[in-house]
Amino acid sequence: MASGTDNAPQARPVSAKVVVSGGFGVGKTTFVSAVSEIAPLRTEAKMTSAASEVDDGTLVASKTSTTVAMDFGKITVDQGLVLYVFGTPGQDRFGFMWNDITAGALGALILVDTRRLDECFNAIDFFEQRNVPFIIGLNQFDGAPHHDTEDIREALDLPKYVPIIRTDARSSDGALDTLVQLLSHILTTLAQNATPVAAAAPAPVAAPEPQRAAPVVTNDMRSAAMSALAAERGQ
């Protein structure tokens, strides 16, 4: 292949994305910094009606424009594969930039401060509704009571198959380990979807559940249909 650069064989990396989410001040930015090989980059996530024309034809910033900083980091996994880690913006959480940031994500880490559990409810709903696999990371804030993870599972109304782990967003090792756990959960979820036998079927819960395990886009419609069928026929 003729190319102007001498690193031509590695010139076309594939990119993938995971998301770090959760409520206000739970350590999203800290986590992204801890895993990223580059200084986390910040950008502004929104531009809706940021400029509007006034009478004399000049453009002015309209009042409705809110600019939200969004951070993301990068991990070059091998020369042909790059993983981006995007943090969801802390404010205006459920605006459309959440869709932009999460569309096509492999999965999500939802960080939780155990002193303010309710702050992650919206994030959980968001990823559940979109069938994005996620895990819960409990950040160990100083002075936070040490709850049993199963109590937290109950409080968050999460099924058994959602991993709840303790993490420390401040340490690079701890954060990378958390990322590994997220990726294994994604792998497990995908593998389960790919086989018609639901070996570890979700435990029944009171509320009607969306098919959390299904990816946003199914690679193989047939196998998805088959596994749905198998599930219907009674595992």
Binding site: V14, K17, V77, L81, G104, L106, V132, N219
Partner: peptide, 23 residues
């Protein structure tokens, strides 16, 4: 535009997992 991975690409997830685990 270069390729982005599909959110259900098992082979890619496995590669990510191995790559990050081994750092």
């Amino acid at each position: 535009v270069l390729e982005t991975t599909r959110s259900d690409d098992i082979a890619i997830v496995r590669r990510l997992l191995d790559g990050i685990r081994n750092r």
